[in-house]
Design a binder for these strands. Structure first.
Lengths: 228, 228
DNA sequence: TGCCAAGTGGACGCAATCGTCCGATTCGAC
DNA sequence: GTCGAATCGGACGATTGCGTCCACTTGGCA
């Protein structure tokens, strides 16, 4: 995984190309934050100070751009999962993981949509990473349940429910930390074993990979017409 | 306000016009369910078997069409609130209200977006209805808290958090009853007074009317490019 | 049955966005 | 400093959706 390109001495790509790529990513995050993940590609290019063709050369599709823009955040998520597994108290690890991912969804507007959009991604690398994340998370859940803190009827697929719900909230109220924290706190409390006073309905049993997001995905903004 | 048209005896409008209006509403629900609330107006018109101009005459803006399409569901919501207030056990009323609205959000795809989009509506009628709903709901909350079933730190604005989160879930997983029920069950359990084992963060204190939805609203679908 | 306004439908002009093509420019090795 | 190649950026044609205009049809009262 070291030999991706070896033309120009070190780094592989030309210096200006690399610089432009970075500029595009910064601009993409800014534009996505302001106008949503559907913002015109040309807007991103203009903000980055590059031409449209340059943008398309670096990122042939919108998905590629989105993935590139939030790669850092995605890495943070997987690291949070690793940390959670390493934590001495599995419940604290679990709790911290949920809070971290939700905070991430909140702070970088546009990331929530990118996050759920990445689930069904077919890229080999992503498939592997996702499968591993699923396995790790299931392990974390089992440990937290064995420690007696997490209710035993919590199902690993519940995390998808939580993330999708929080994604909806974060998208509707961008940057509203109070609402986000409130929702997360309610949910975490109901996940505690000592809060389980009633049986739950059957788990949704979603596989992260089977989310039908890309099929038609979250529907667009309620409206914005009245331009007359 | 009676003499908008007085040519045709009873009803005010001509029979075929009324029939077309109904056909448009049915088509709108169908199309919104399939392609989201942003579906082209022309598609709705075609499905209804009418021309675009006819559609625009009945519903000058997309918002008007959306409002018309889900007026019935909105009425169901307000009735559910009335019923909840009338219920002998305020907690059961509260619980039933939440479940009803969420079930409604789930069954009629496109309704969730319409529902949250309607919050900041400036129509006089809607403003009045919304204010009344807010007052009634606050009353319901107070009663449920006094009965000892609802935790005392539940804030009326939490309902907005719940509905937005559930809306996100319902939009991402249209028709997935299992996920919806699961989320609602978790949340309802955490609202019980006997589940309150930790203090909550501060409430989001949203007013339904101040939701910044229309400003830029829920961001579009994660992507769908790759048309090449 | 005949009249006329309300109602209807499709075509049209406008605007936004997409993704590609091509000439000009810049990089960096020699 | 020079040259070849990679890169750049704007323009372009195509597609899609919006909302209006206008000529035709239809409903229902006289």
């Amino acid at each position: 995984m070291v030999e991706s390109s070896r033309i120009t001495a070190r780094g592989g790509t030309r210096a200006d190309a690399r610089r432009n790529r970075e500029r595009v990513l910064v601009a993409a995050r800014a534009v996505f934050a302001e106008r949503g993940i559907d913002a015109p590609m040309a807007t991103v290019a203009r903000r980055a100070g590059v031409g449209v063709a340059t943008l398309y050369r670096h990122f042939p599709t919108r998905d590629a751009l989105v993935r590139g823009a939030y790669a850092q955040q995605m890495r943070t998520c997987t690291r949070a999962l690793t940390d959670a597994l390493a934590a001495p108290d599995p419940w604290q690890g679990f709790r911290h993981l949920v809070e971290t991912v939700c905070a991430l969804q909140l702070e970088e507007r546009g990331f929530p949509a990118a996050f759920v959009a990445a689930f069904p991604d077919r890229t080999a690398e992503y498939t592997r990473a996702r499968d591993r994340a699923e396995r790790d998370f299931a392990t974390l859940v089992r440990r937290a349940q064995e420690s007696g803190a997490l209710r035993t009827d919590f199902h690993p697929s519940d995390i998808a429910v939580v993330l999708l719900a929080h994604c909806g909230l974060a998208t509707a109220l961008p940057g509203d930390g109070a609402a986000s924290r409130r929702l997360v706190a309610y949910l975490l409390q109901s996940f505690r074993a000592d809060a389980a006073n009633e049986p739950l309905p059957a788990p949704a049993a979603l596989s992260l990979r089977s989310l039908p997001i890309t099929a038609d995905g979250p529907q667009g903004r309620p409206s914005r017409s009245s331009r007359h």
